[in-house]
Simulated assay, not measured.
Amino acid sequence: MNEALGSVVSAVMVDENQDYYFVQPARNGQTYRLAKSEAPQVLHIGGSVKGFVYENADHQLQMTCAHIPTVQVDHYDFGTVVGVRRDLGVFVDIGLPNKDIVVSLDDLPNLKHLWPQPGDRLLLALRVDDHDRLWGQLADEEIFRTIAAKPSRQLINQDVTATIYRLKLAGSLALTADYHLAFIHPSERDQEPRLGQVVKGRVIGLSSHGGVNLSLKPRAYQAINDDAAQILALLKHSQDHQLPLTDKSSPAEIKALLGISKGQFKRAVGHLLRARLVNQINGKLILLKEPSDD
């Protein structure tokens, strides 16, 4: 097995042509092409150079000094998904100009609609198989625990961005942009996010495992319909934050003030009551609080 692949190595220049130097790492025996435009200096026979070695998309052994990726053998970082092949896996851009790295379908969810899509992010390193092929190796739980930061209670109710890194029956595991481990219970999402998907949510609590609990559902005031939003706006801008209406008001009174049916009004008020934004007292609808991040 070519153990140099996927790593930064030192090599010696052994030949050249108009466009390339040809270099060999010590104790390797393989020859790699290095574009002269990428060489850090003019090389002569026996001159040494250091760079990242890999097999490019044309199956040529190559060294790069200008596009050294942070994703390497035993070195984890995020790469961006750029393609999907159902019979193979997903292709990930790690920064090489002429090579994308495949994460095998064996390492992806059984349900293909949960596979990463172009633009999604995966934390991975490289591995070399017995046929000297480079593959993407997804980070395991231990890697994520190693890089995770400890959250504080000040995060509760904050909006965060997170990348999904594991799908489980119990819920989705994610890593926030600030490197906090996160858990999303199925009840706190409308649909299961994909592996690698970047989601926006809010912190609803701290978990017993040293991470945070997220909700991907909108806050109550963000989820209200147009009728409820209209009622909230009227309450907010009235001098005493009240309206002379309740669900006991006549259809004519509701229509005259709001221009909606009594059925629409009752549904909207029901939503606002459940969100604890309003109350009905003495024949009036009263604003309890401004829509907030609760």
Score class of each variant (00 low, 15 high):
A220Y: 08
Q72F: 07
L287I: 11
V102T: 13
P291V: 14
D74R: 13
G201L: 04
Y21Q: 06
V82W: 02
V269K: 05
Q154G: 11
R202N: 13
R33P: 00
Q30N: 12
E188V: 00
L5F: 08
L111S: 13
H180F: 14
K50C: 08
R86T: 14
P186Q: 11
P118D: 09
T70H: 08
S215N: 05
K262F: 03
F91A: 11
N279G: 03
A220P: 04
S238E: 09
L124Q: 02
I254W: 05
V42M: 12
G89Q: 08
T246I: 06
Q280R: 10
M1W: 02
K36E: 12
A57K: 14
Q60T: 12
F91E: 09
A4V: 14
R274P: 00
K262S: 14
G205D: 03
H67W: 07
Y165K: 01
H271E: 15
H241E: 10
R86A: 14
V8C: 04
H209E: 14
L175C: 02
G283C: 04
S10R: 15
A148K: 07
I147F: 01
N28Q: 08
V12D: 03
Y76R: 07
D106Q: 13
D129M: 05
I101D: 03
E141C: 00
A11C: 10
V14L: 13
I224W: 05
L245Q: 05
Q41M: 13
L155H: 09
L243N: 09
N282H: 09
A66T: 15
I68Y: 01
D93N: 12
L285Q: 08
D240G: 05
D93P: 00
D294P: 08
K236D: 09
G119P: 03
A4R: 11
P291R: 10
D190P: 00
H44D: 15
I281S: 07
V53N: 02
E253G: 00
P251Q: 10
A139W: 01
I164L: 06
A162S: 06
L96Q: 07
